[in-house]
């Protein structure tokens, strides 16, 4: 790599290279779209990688039906704006059984996210799925390859990863296997924000601080996004100025108090951050190593 480019240029080039390799070599790729900031960056890179052609693969969102309303609005708006195919998949069986994040805890995540993702991939027969995972998010991710293989049950074997040399990616899979591909593997949270600013990428307004209706529950600040959220004894809805560092199902996504209502303010806050971003995801607290366990079972 030449010395004349900035480190964001280097990361961008690497991601575009990976995205193009998948489009050229894989039989049926899909880009998973979670509506979060990393997905927004990945979508932006996919548009850039193929311009003036549209990305030669569809996008897929796994909708648990518990996402923030603003996220769904943003998703539909972006799909229309770029003219891309956006598949939305929900685990209908789980929904019919009344799975919800309040009563079912970890089982909810397994069924409405992990299981729903497997269903969606199997339904369309996708052989490669781009995800926005970054190695700086969590220790077990720090060891995952860019091209990560899943067996027919979509599970990951961390002890049997294919060696990944230079940028000679091996995209060949056996019958029934599939791949997860992480073009943002080498990006940090800070790189994501700086790139969003440099490229002027639209993100869901929930990332910016604003007064929102919230309750405090188990050391998390949870936004009351609709009336499915039942208050517990002693809880009251308060309006507080909060923003979200990651986005997911609103009952499982903790906000942080913040005055950062511009990109620059968010970046300043991130650079001086006292918590790494996954601490605001409720599921990761369960036990040290919980992410590795989830991933072996097929969680993205």
């Amino acid at each position: 790599m030449s010395n004349v480019h900035s480190h964001l240029d280097q990361l961008e080039a690497e991601a575009i290279y990976i995205i193009r390799e998948v489009a050229a070599e894989c039989e049926k790729p899909v880009m998973l779209y979670s509506i979060g900031k990393d997905s927004s960056v990945m979508l932006h890179l996919a548009i850039k990688a193929f311009y003036p052609e549209k990305p030669p693969f569809p996008f897929m969102h796994i909708d648990t039906t518990w996402k923030f309303k603003e996220m769904i609005h943003f998703r539909d708006q972006k799909a229309a704006e770029y003219g891309i195919e956006m598949i939305v998949h929900t685990n209908q069986k789980g929904l019919d059984e009344g799975m919800n994040p309040f009563d079912h805890g970890a089982a909810y995540t397994d069924i409405m996210k992990t299981e729903a993702l497997k269903q969606g991939l199997d339904k369309y027969g996708f052989t490669a799925a781009f995800g926005g995972g970054r190695r700086d998010e969590e220790k077990s991710r720090a060891k995952e390859r860019v091209f990560s293989f899943r067996n027919e049950y979509h599970t990951w074997d961390p002890r049997n990863q294919k060696p990944e040399m230079w940028k000679l990616y091996n995209t060949r899979i056996n019958q029934g296997e599939s791949m997860r591909v992480f073009p943002l593997s080498n990006w940090t949270e800070k790189d994501i924000w700086q790139y969003i600013r440099r490229e002027n990428i639209d993100i869901v307004p929930l990332y910016f601080a604003k007064e929102r209706p919230v309750v405090h529950r188990d050391n998390n600040i949870i936004m009351v996004d609709d009336d499915r959220m039942k208050l517990q004894d002693g809880e009251t809805i308060r309006r507080e100025k909060v923003r979200f560092r990651t986005l997911g199902c609103y009952p499982l996504t903790g906000g942080v108090h913040s005055d950062a209502d511009t990109l620059d303010a968010i970046i300043d806050e991130t650079l001086g951050a006292v918590s790494s971003e996954r601490t605001s995801r409720v599921i990761d607290h369960e036990a040290s190593g919980s992410m590795e366990r989830r991933k072996r079972e097929g969680y993205f």
Partner: peptide, 24 residues
């Protein structure tokens, strides 16, 4: 402990795969 991420490694006290770290 910051780097030896995989559970199996922590148990054995050795590093079995490449771990990537990012810092500025």
């Amino acid at each position: 402990l910051l780097l030896d991420g995989l559970m199996a490694e922590r148990e054995q006290g050795i590093t079995i795969d490449v771990a990537y770290r990012y810092f500025t």
